[in-house]
């Protein structure tokens, strides 16, 4: 077994076969169009930093000193 298929425990690459199995299972469970899934995930990813920035900006406006 090559070291390539190492655990995703600490940011190591996942096993390609296992990832294929997971993708098929994900398809079965979610059943959405791939494009819709991509858009949803990207929107979610973009929303996280924007939310952090928005909360910080709101707080900053209420006179919090920036460290």
């Amino acid at each position: 077994m090559p070291l390539a298929s190492v655990s995703p425990h600490h940011g190591d690459p996942g096993d390609p076969d296992l990832l294929q199995w997971l993708q098929h299972r994900f398809d079965q469970v979610v059943g959405l169009d791939p494009l819709a899934i991509i858009i949803l995930i990207l929107l979610f990813l973009i929303a996280i930093p924007l939310t952090i920035l928005a909360i910080y900006a709101l707080q900053h406006r209420r006179s919090a000193p920036k460290p």
């Binding site: 090559p2 070291l3 390539a4 298929s5 190492v6 995703p8 940011g11 190591d12 690459p13 996942g14 096993d15 390609p16 296992l18 990832l19 294929q20 993708q23």
Partner: peptide, 30 residues
Amino acid sequence: RNGFGVFVIPMSDDFGWNRGSISLAASVGF
């Protein structure tokens, strides 16, 4: 980084690499 495994098959197909060859990149990286 987890997603590297997803690239293994399409990149191997494109370049004619076998799994062991492309796995070398991940092994060295690990």
